[in-house]
Every structure is written in structure tokens, then in C-alpha cells.
Design a protein around this nucleic acid. Structure first.
Lengths: 142, 142
DNA sequence: CTGTGTGCAAACACTTTGCAGGTGT
DNA sequence: ACACCTGCAAAGTGTTTGCACACAG
């Protein structure tokens, strides 16, 4: 699930060493990463704080989005092309699947959350569906 | 949305002052409460730690469940009768609605999460749908 | 050169743990 | 009487802030 030519410049982010590496880390995998995951996966050693700030600026610029995780640490994933279209249209109404075996959380881009009939007077802005279970890898492995 | 005659004894919990008050706090409202919410709503002053432990024992005994919230503090809500049926059947596949105006998170018991077709080899154990928007109160108020 | 990014130290918020004393059964 | 609850203090964990220096444009 490679992400094509995302460049920091396109998001008004100066291409520093840390940012480049963090972006690569996201592009290297197809699941959501926590601050800790990133800290581990970088070749160079960056300060914890710097990674936090990097994530924050990525968030602000719409390069990544927060992934709703099962009360664990906060995770982040790259936004897809869809998200960057339009002005303030930054939708993430897709499904996140957390594997209870390997702990990875992936975005199921292809699965769309069906429209749920809400009681009257409720207005929906955003919805997040977190499904927990066993992912395809772990299901095959065992 | 009153909760009928739930008693601590039924859940193998000694009826202490703190536990009684915390249970009442849950029964008094129809939305999910955080540790902080509870700390504020109690008439008597209990130690923060005691409330944490109270929540933990309530969780263990299946009196309450964690509510998936939008990356804020952890919230809890009373389990309904459904949850207590059966041996280890403790399902919470319902919808949580978080109001972005008042911040309250409520359980929409009546709304059922439709079955989502997952890619093959994925096994679903549990699902949580968090919908964010404006609740009926805030929608009426403004 | 100017503004932004980085590292370090410290502050912060939230939650858990250890221990002595108090309470329910 | 005994086990379990509670309060206080302290330790843990994850995240943010302040400040001086370093780097990109």
C-alpha cells in the first residue's frame, strides 16, 4: 500500500531530517503509528519532543490524521488523496480495524461506513468505526 | 432514562459510601462520565484514587463499561440489562454519540451497528461506532 | 539575516502503586 | 476477626512548554 510522491513542501512543511524520516516511516507501512512506534523505527535518534512536534505540524497541515484506537496510545496515519481534495473537506469517515493479536491498527479505506439513522434532531458531522478482531495476517499465521 | 434497581451487592461489591455515590451519579444522568465528571458530581469529597479504584472494580464486575471517546479522557457508562445476560456475553456493539457542542457522550442503545462486510480473512470480534456531531439538546437550544 | 525547527530540562495531566489505618460482614 | 476499602504520598506514563542554539530559505 505505497503512498505516491507525497512531499513535505506540498504541505508547507520545511523538509528537515526529522520530518523526512517520519514521513518515510509512515510510507513504509500500511498501518497506523504511535509516537512510540515512530521513535523506534527511525534510523537517526530524534528527541521525543521533536517527534511530538513533528506529528503536530503534520496534523495541522493535513498530512496525517488521528486514528481512533481502543483506549491505547494515540495513533496516526497518512491521509489519502481523498482528504486533500476540496477546501476544508477533510473527511475520515472510514473504518479502522485493530487486530487484537498483533495490535496493529489499519485503515480500511475501501470500506465505507453505512449511513446510520439517528434519532431526530441529532446532526452527524463525523463518524468513526473501530472494529476489533483478528487481521488477515494473524488469521493466516495461526 | 432511569436505570432500575441496580444493586452493588448483585455485583459482589460491598456497598460503601463512595461506591453508592458513584453508582448514583451514573444513574442520575443518561450520558457517559469521566473520572473527573464523577469527582465533581459527588456530594461528599472522595479521593481521586478511590474513584479510580471504584471505577476499576465496577469495570471488573461488569457494572460499567468503557466508552470510546474522541481521544479525550476515558469515559464510562452503566451496562444495560443486555450486557448481564449470559455467561461471558458482554457486548457493547452499540453507537456512541459525542456532541461537539456540549461535550457529552451518550449511548444510543437503540441504534444497532449494521454488519459491515470485511475483506476476507478478517474476523470481527467487537465494533465501536463513534458519531460526532450535535445532540438534540444543543440543536434545540441554539 | 530571519523565522522556524530542534534538543534539553522541566512542567503538566492523568493514572497506578505502596502502605497504614478504617470499615463492612 | 478478617478481608477489603480508603486516604495520602509517591512513582509512572504520555504529552506539552520554555528557552537557547542550529538550520532552511
Amino acid at each position: 500500500m505505497a503512498h505516491s510522491k507525497l512531499s513535505l513542501a506540498d504541505f508547507n512543511l520545511r523538509p528537515t531530517a526529522c520530518r523526512t524520516e517520519v514521513l518515510s516511516a509512515f510510507q513504509a507501512v500500511d498501518y497506523a503509528l504511535s509516537q512510540y512506534d515512530i521513535e523506534q523505527s527511525l534510523s537517526a535518534q530524534f528527541d521525543r519532543v521533536t517527534i511530538y512536534r513533528t506529528l503536530k505540524s503534520f496534523l495541522t497541515q493535513g498530512l496525517i490524521h488521528k486514528v481512533l484506537d481502543d483506549h491505547g496510545s494515540t495513533k496516526y496515519a497518512l491521509c489519502k488523496e481523498l482528504c486533500h481534495q476540496g477546501e476544508h473537506v477533510h473527511q475520515h469517515d472510514h473504518v479502522h480495524f485493530k487486530c487484537q493479536s498483533c495490535g496493529q491498527t489499519i485503515c480500511l479505506e475501501t470500506v465505507i461506513i453505512p449511513s446510520i439513522p439517528l434519532p431526530s434532531k441529532f446532526i452527524k458531522h463525523e463518524s468513526n468505526l473501530l472494529i476489533q478482531g483478528i487481521c488477515e495476517h494473524c488469521n493466516s499465521a495461526t
